[in-house]
Amino acid sequence: MKYINAKVLKSIWPVCFGYIPLGLACGVLAEKVGVDPIAIGVMSILVFAGSGQFIALAMIGAGCPIPPIVFTIFIVNLRHIFYATILNSYIKEKSTIFKALFAQEIVDETSAVNMTNFEQKDVEWSAEEAITSAYLAHLSWIIATIAGCVLGSVANIDTALVSYALIAMFIGLWSFHFWHKKLILAGIAAGFLALLLAPFLSNMLNVVVATLVVSVLAAMIGGELDE
């Protein structure tokens, strides 16, 4: 609590704010697919992955068995490995327990804020401030998803419209990789391959196979990503 200062709040409020509509949409989706407010709260605490939770809920709603859901979310959340790799260099001297707790708070948004602040020479950004910022964002996410789930059962919400928040978020997350032409091309290639595979592989397995095939080929053919 003692690390909740002006610097922390200034850095993290846009993330907390952004999580409100997103979390509400996620909670509403949870309610639609039969996940109750307690379960979505537990999921938001233990899984804490915006896109991962949306996809998992959509797959639960589609009647998908557990193993493909878990495998898909593993693939979707693989990107966190990059943030953890980068952030490790800033909190190297911290205890294993601190690192273990910090790891759970790694998502796109909290990592973006923390990496930016750690990198800035004129800003003093401690590991404690980093984890506190992430905790505030996580708290916002937990509350918003539970609220969405509760409201979803009383309010009449347009499922098609709400689901589009997920697609828009995918596009937003994809755009993080637009800094290199090769990455854009790999994404488009995976997109077309996934569509071609769709008639043969259900339950998002087409996405998994397209990802594995294209990412391996892209690394072999495309090779290094120069700035």
Binding site: F170, A189, A190, M204, V207, V214, A218, L225
Partner: peptide, 27 residues
């Protein structure tokens, strides 16, 4: 490491294409 760099963009490309082009009646 190089392979991992191409994984997220591939996942999102695949997810986006399936989300926007795939309907109940096909592509």
């Amino acid at each position: 490491e190089l392979w991992l760099k191409y994984v997220p963009t591939s996942v999102f490309g695949a997810l986006i294409f399936c989300s926007i082009f795939q309907t109940d009646s096909g592509v």
